Amino acid sequence: MRNISGLKVLIVEDEALVALMIEDMLQDLGCEIIASISRLADARAIAAKADIDLAVLDVNLAGELSFSIAEILRNRQIPFVFSTGYGMDGLPDEFGSHLVIGKPFSSGELQEIIAGAIER
C-alpha cells in the first residue's frame, strides 16, 4: 500500500465527531490537515485557493450536496474521495468514477482509498 504521509488534506464533513475521527486517522497516517470545514460555502472558498494534495468530501453537508466542491477540485486537478453513508447511489453520473468510502470506515480503508485516488 502506498505511503500517504506528508499529504496536505482538506476535510469537508458536517458531523463534528466524524470530522475529528477523520482528522485523527489522517494525522496518524502522517498527513497534514490544511482545514476541516463543515459548511459548503466555506469549503468552496478553501477548495478554490488552498494548497492541498487531496480532499475528503462528505457528500451531504447538512442537506447541501458537496458536488460543487468536487467540481472546483476537479478543475484544479486535485484528487478527492467522497465519504458517505449512502454509497454510490447518491453520486451523479459525472462523478460516478470517483472513489467513495462508506461510513463508517477504518484507518486502513481510508489509507487505501486515498492511495488509490492519488495514483489515478
Rank of each mutant, 00 (worst) to 15 (best):
R2M: 13
I4A: 03
G6H: 11
K8Y: 06
K8M: 06
K8E: 12
K8W: 05
V9I: 15
V9K: 03
V12R: 08
V12H: 09
E15P: 00
A16M: 12
L17N: 06
L17V: 01
L17E: 00
A19T: 01
L20R: 07
L20H: 01
M21P: 00
D24F: 02
M25E: 10
Q27W: 01
Q27R: 15
L29C: 09
G30Q: 10
G30W: 08
C31Q: 05
E32Q: 12
E32K: 12
I33Y: 06
S36K: 09
I37E: 14
I37M: 11
I37P: 01
S38C: 04
R39G: 08
R39D: 15
L40R: 08
L40H: 13
A43V: 04
A43K: 02
K49A: 14
A50C: 10
A50M: 09
A50P: 06
I52G: 06
D53G: 14
D53Q: 10
V56S: 13
V56D: 01
D58Y: 03
V59M: 09
V59A: 10
G63L: 05
E64V: 02
L65S: 11
L65C: 04
S66Y: 04
S66C: 09
F67D: 11
F67P: 11
F67I: 12
I69P: 03
I69W: 02
A70T: 08
E71N: 13
I72H: 05
L73H: 05
R74E: 14
Q77M: 06
P79C: 05
V81I: 15
V81N: 04
T84H: 10
T84S: 15
D89K: 15
L91N: 10
L91I: 11
P92V: 01
P92C: 06
E94P: 00
G96C: 09
G96P: 00
S97Q: 14
H98V: 08
L99M: 13
L99T: 13
V100C: 11
S106L: 08
L110H: 01
G116E: 12
I118P: 03
I118M: 15
E119A: 15
R120G: 13
